[in-house]
Design a binder for these strands. Structure first.
Length: 265
DNA sequence: ATGGCGCGTCAAACGCGA
């Protein structure tokens, strides 16, 4: 029995500040494909060599100071796209996708950093909702073309009350607004599978804990990093989970890795 | 209930995140 392909998403909150932490995790967990968000680096400043030394091919879509996403893959990839379709004026680096082709069939992997959207009632929240509509249209187009895919990243959406330790603390936050949650539900309703939720039905699974107020020590977390699978990808899912332990390391990101295993070797 | 952090930019506070 061959090892399944593991796809991991991780908002690392600054690739340079997190290089040692990320390398230690990747050496140990050895995911096949990694979607990184908030690299906070331009492409030329991304430490690609450090990841290549761990056996990864690297593609980045960086930006100075903020945002920025990257794809790492042990298998070669092609058809790299660095924009989410639907708005040619969007200057923020929040999306990169590529096609990886294990023996069992090719898979398109989209790595996304969905806008935070705070504070609500501003252009930032409108941008979040517009971005989600573009993501939905893109997912719909891939489904229409019968392309197997995984859309993985920091969605900045708390889907349900069970996805927060203290849901009432988030009611006025863009991450838990009815409009944000409705847009998430529309995405799922296309026929996509929330991998971690499908494998872990209960509460208490979080991917983010604020740096402040000892949130991690109190397990005062939220689940906002997700992997959505197309039907064909979901048929191949063997496991999914969240690796909480890097949050307890020195100089951690405020997010932790979430992953899915697909049997498509 | 409250206060509480960290990163990048740039060289002191400030924007931004969630």
């Amino acid at each position: 029995m061959t090892r399944p392909m593991r796809i991991t998403t991780w908002n690392i909150n600054g690739v340079k500040a997190r290089l040692e932490t990320a390398a230690a995790y990747l050496r140990d967990a050895a995911p096949d494909v990694v979607c990184l968000q908030e690299i906070k680096s331009v492409d030329e400043g991304f430490p690609a060599e450090a990841f290549q030394a761990l056996g990864y091919n690297v593609a980045t879509h960086g930006q100075k100071g903020f945002n920025g996403v990257a794809l790492l893959s042990k298998l070669p990839f092609d058809d790299v796209a660095r924009r989410l379709p639907g708005d040619d004026t969007d200057e923020q680096s929040r999306y990169i996708e590529a096609v990886v082709s294990p023996a069992g069939g090719s898979l398109r992997v989209g790595c996304l950093y969905l806008p935070n959207g705070n504070p609500i009632g501003t252009g930032k929240f409108a941008y979040k909702l517009a971005w989600m509509a573009r993501l939905e249209a893109h997912a719909r187009a891939m489904l229409d073309d019968e392309i197997p895919f995984v859309l993985a990243g920091d969605y900045n959406v708390i889907p349900e009350r069970a996805d927060a330790k203290r849901p009432d603390a988030w009611t006025s936050d863009a991450l838990f607004q009815p409009e944000s949650r409705a847009a998430w539900r529309r995405l799922v309703a296309l026929g996509l599978t929330d991998a971690v939720r499908a494998c872990h039905p209960g509460p208490g699974f979080y991917t983010f804990w604020d740096y402040q107020a000892g949130a991690f020590q109190k397990n005062d977390g939220i689940r906002i990093d997700h992997l959505l699978l197309s039907p064909a990808a979901a048929d191949r899912m063997t496991a999914a989970g969240i690796d909480t332990f890097p949050r307890g390391w020195e100089k951690p990101s405020d997010h932790v890795p979430a992953w899915v295993d697909l049997d498509i070797d």
